[in-house]
Amino acid sequence: MEPLREVSGRAIPFGRKNIDTDVIIPAKWLKTITRDGLGRGAFETLREDPGNLFDSPEFAGSPILIAGDNFGCGSSREHAAWALLDLGVRAVIAPSFSDIFSGNAFKNGIVTVVLPQTAIDRLMEVAQTDPVSIDLESQTVTTPFQDRFTFEIDPFRKHCLLEGLDEVGLTLARGDAIARYENDAKAALPWLAKGVEHA
């Protein structure tokens, strides 16, 4: 994964609330066996409207998406994160995110920035005409008009994003600790440790 330190540029002032992952990428696009090319299906239903933001000359390819409360709710499909990435989105700003979407986004190098609705309202206004900048190290979102909003992020997620770390590789390096746990579990919870051998 590429390290991510800052995301700057135009932000799509989308703003809608309870956007589920069926809206971000409809089920028919889930039949792929690769991670690529899903940008074509991103927000497909909304993009049937010729005036949609995602295809407008002004916002197409923007690295930041501003959304409403509960962005990414519903299905666990990581295709939603892959679709956004393929559109060029590297950061989503919203008052709240679904837990699963947020995890999926982070694992694909997309930062989810939680800000209060008042800050979102201001950024929606700025985004109409001007760029927005997110700095991960200082955990801030700024605008050319001296707006400055700070956000919280899990320290481990921040570390992985800044360093571009591969989580699987990190955990595989903890193989000894996992083996120790498995040994202990064999004594403490033997029926769980046995798995499908019972059949």
Binding site: S76, G103, V168, T171, G175, E182
Partner: peptide, 14 residues
């Protein structure tokens, strides 16, 4: 529920 990256993580590391 988990995403596909986590599916990979669980397959590889449990």
């Amino acid at each position: 529920g988990i995403g596909t990256s986590e599916v990979e993580h669980v397959l590889a590391t449990q």
